[in-house]
């Protein structure tokens, strides 16, 4: 599976990189972004799903890689 952040929706709440620092990073404004190629499985998929379920802006999505 692959995780995405919609940069237009992200407002920098910081929930994703706090809950799943191995999957998400942040830029100099504090907005989140996906680390690496965004392919997630097992533990990292579970973390990505946790982040998705906590993003107040619904900016995170997980789809087929």
């Amino acid at each position: 599976m692959k995780v995405f952040i919609d940069a237009q929706r992200c407002q920098g709440h910081g929930r994703c990189f706090s809950l799943a620092p191995s999957v998400f990073g942040f830029d100099e404004l504090g907005n989140g972004h996906v680390l690496g190629d965004g392919v997630v499985e097992g533990e990292s998929l579970a973390l990505a799903r946790l982040a998705e379920a906590n993003c107040p802006e619904h900016a995170i999505s997980i789809g087929e890689s």
């Binding site: 920098g12 990189f17 942040f26 100099e28 404004l29 504090g30």
Partner: peptide, 10 residues
């Protein structure tokens, strides 16, 4: 954008 860097996680 001007003030966000001062309040970013770093």
């Amino acid at each position: 954008r001007l003030i966000l860097p001062a309040f970013a996680p770093g």
